[in-house]
Amino acid sequence: MKKEITRVDVGSVALMYGGILASIGLVIGILFAIFGSMLMSLNAKSSMPMGGGIVLAVLLPIIYGAIGAILGALFAVAYNFIAGRIGGVKVYVRD
């Protein structure tokens, strides 16, 4: 059975996209913390302060999540606008 998604809820798309990007930010932040501490131990004159990797591991998910929520809301509004004029995404579902 073919159905069409004609509108999406802006809040739920923003929340979902923000959560996805926050998860990606957490992974990137953890990688920065691990590799930053490894590089810090190799170079005593490193430009990254001692807790720089930990700060990034905390800040990146917050920043990525906020940006993701804003972009998710913008994408949802754009989808609703365009889907109202040319039609939405068609999906196939089985009962």
Rank of each mutant, 00 (worst) to 15 (best):
A78E: 12
A73V: 04
G68F: 08
G65N: 03
I62P: 07
G52I: 04
I70D: 12
D9K: 11
S23I: 01
I82T: 06
M1H: 11
R94M: 14
I62Y: 08
S37Y: 10
N43V: 04
G88C: 02
G51S: 10
G72K: 08
G19Q: 01
M16I: 06
A57E: 05
G53S: 06
I62Q: 07
L21W: 06
G18L: 01
D9W: 05
I70P: 10
G29E: 00
G65Y: 03
G72I: 07
A69N: 09
M40C: 12
I67A: 15
N80D: 10
G53A: 06
S41L: 15
V8A: 11
I28K: 05
F81N: 08
M1F: 07
D95Q: 13
L39P: 06
G36R: 00
I5D: 08
G51W: 10
I20E: 07
V77P: 02
I28D: 05
S12C: 02
I67L: 15
I67C: 15
I63L: 15
I20N: 05
P61C: 06
K3R: 15
A76K: 00
Y17W: 12
I54C: 09
L71R: 15
A57Y: 08
I30E: 00
G18Q: 00
L42D: 15
L39Y: 13
I30T: 02
V55Q: 10
G25E: 00
Y64S: 12
L26E: 01
I34N: 08
G68Q: 05
A22F: 03
I82R: 04
G19A: 03
F75V: 03
V93M: 10
A33Y: 11
R85P: 05
F75M: 10
D9M: 04
I54Q: 11
F32W: 10
N43K: 04
A33I: 02
A14I: 08
G88P: 00
G68L: 10
